[in-house]
Design a binder for these strands. Structure first.
Lengths: 100, 100
DNA sequence: TTCATATATCGAGATTTATAGATATATTTG
DNA sequence: CAAATATATCTATAAATCTCGATATATGAA
């Protein structure tokens, strides 16, 4: 972690919806319905569910999630036509160790 | 800590200079000269020293520091005509516990 | 291959933030 | 009180971000 990376993470965490997404993804099974195809939450939650819960447009949420993955806050995994997102606890810890 | 407060803190941490200030204030005695009047760093570092080190205008840094205090990242203490800033470790920990 | 669905990217207007200079306020000193 | 210094606030312009609709791409199904 360095100053630039930490600032990129800070930018992602400077918007209420994005912080909310990080909170939701702490407990996917509580905050989201089980996916019709995938029967587990091992790789997180698909973009559509996050988008519907957040109530913003598909393009906006897609951009959010892409940036959150680029800065390391999230991990994205594709299964067929779905992308699943989960928290990247490793980077989150590195960020916290940088800030504290 | 709640979603709104965490987002306010995130906004403060979304700018490289402000993150840098948080880092500098981890070790004031290493990053700043001792103050001519006050002989200790118990209350942190005065605005002028931070402003000079950051290299931005006085008004910009004053606004930064005011906002960082408002969201709880910093504690401000006045001694005569100087304002001293130090990290508010309590809020920082609350923020980290919210994020992690 | 064609269609339907999921996600990503592009382009643009609205909103917010960055940053500075000017000015105001507070405090100490002469 | 007047001058000097430190900090805060106001105002304005430039830059960045927000957010959407439109469009493109990717994948599975028919």
């Amino acid at each position: 972690m360095n100053l630039r990376k930490a600032t990129e993470i800070g930018k992602c965490l400077s918007n209420e919806t994005r912080v909310q997404i990080m909170e939701w993804l702490k407990k996917p099974e509580i905050n989201f319905p089980p996916h019709e195809t995938l029967k587990h939450f091992n790789d997180g939650v698909c973009v559509t569910y996050i988008q519907e819960k957040a109530g913003l447009s598909q393009s906006t949420i897609s951009t959010y999630l892409t940036n959150m993955e680029k800065c390391g806050l999230l991990i994205s995994t594709r299964h067929g036509k779905w992308s699943y997102l989960k928290r990247n606890e490793k980077t989150i810890k590195e960020y916290i160790n940088f800030i504290i």
